[in-house]
Design a protein around this nucleic acid. Structure first.
Ligand SMILES: [Zn+2]
Ligand SMILES: [Zn+2]
Ligand SMILES: [Zn+2]
Ligand SMILES: [Zn+2]
Lengths: 146, 146
DNA sequence: CTAATGTCTCTAGCAACTATAGCTTCAAGG
DNA sequence: CCTTGAAGCTATAGTTGCTAGAGACATTAG
């Protein structure tokens, strides 16, 4: 049996994060020691490692919640899980496209600046006027984190 | 003079967002009409467009605050502005590298799944075990938004 | 003049944590 | 056995960049 600190160290997750996952129902309520401290077994470690890895791959906690409940029913078909993964892949591809455009614009800005006064700075100038940009990089749809 | 709604429409920024920018001091307090409604001139529109464009390029509000105060001093040298832009470029490049790795892993997962039961699903399997990954895609340093 | 927008303030909520405060429990050394 | 320090507990508030709602006032079109 692991204390919360050991569990966190093994899974690479900070202690308050584990408590947060329990609070939002992503981890089941842990058993407690005589002194009211949480205790975890191998299953909890596996579940937490799953969460951690999925987070590292950019899945949202909502998606992870669904993936976990799917993985609790091993006899079901896996199409739903695959769909979640494909949606995540599509999301990553959209961000990649946008970031690639941003990178191009930022490089252009930085390269074009001759390094004089603010009044002549290309960085400031381009930031004030999107028509100086070479791509249409604007935020069209919503976008989430990492 | 523009009302807040017209200003937002011209700059492509939602009305509550403008009020939010004023609240956090990114926009100066607007003048008011007789009936206490905010009124904006050309300078406010330019400033808001600058903010919007910088946001679209991924700068944080903190960075934008600095850029704006730099652009208010046109006689100063522009090295500080260029440094902010270069830092943003570096940030974008780091995210790009990470997202590229994520994309590779997600593609591998999706392709390898044969589409049977959850118990045999490669997606679920890989999520539970990072050693099945081909790259080290983990969250090493902190990372900010889109 | 009335009805439909538009605007006002204020508060609360979103994701996914992180930090703080003030307490209790545990493990190890003397 | 006792003390000290680390680790654990709860609860609350803060982070970023907005967005949504309630309820009241202003403006404008017909
Ligand atoms: Zn410059
Ligand atoms: Zn642009
Ligand atoms: Zn599958
Ligand atoms: Zn992995």
């Amino acid at each position: 049996m692991l204390t919360i600190g050991k569990l966190g160290a093994q899974a690479g997750v900070k202690v308050p994060t584990i408590r947060y996952y329990e609070q939002i129902g992503l981890l089941p309520e842990a058993g407690r020691s005589a002194g009211n401290q949480r205790l975890y077994g191998r299953k909890a470690l596996e579940r937490l490692a799953f969460i951690r890895h999925a987070r590292d791959l950019g899945f949202t906690l909502e998606a992870i919640r669904d993936l976990l409940s799917l993985s609790d029913n091993p006899e079901q078909p896996c199409v739903a899980a695959d769909a979640i993964a494909r949606a995540q892949l599509a999301e990553v591809e959209r961000r990649l496209a946008r970031l690639t455009a941003l990178k191009a614009e930022l490089e252009r800005m930085v390269v074009q600046c001759a390094g004089g006064k603010i009044a002549d700075c290309r960085v400031i100038e381009v930031l004030g006027d999107h028509s100086l940009c070479s791509t249409d990089h604007r935020h069209l749809e919503s976008e989430a984190s990492p």
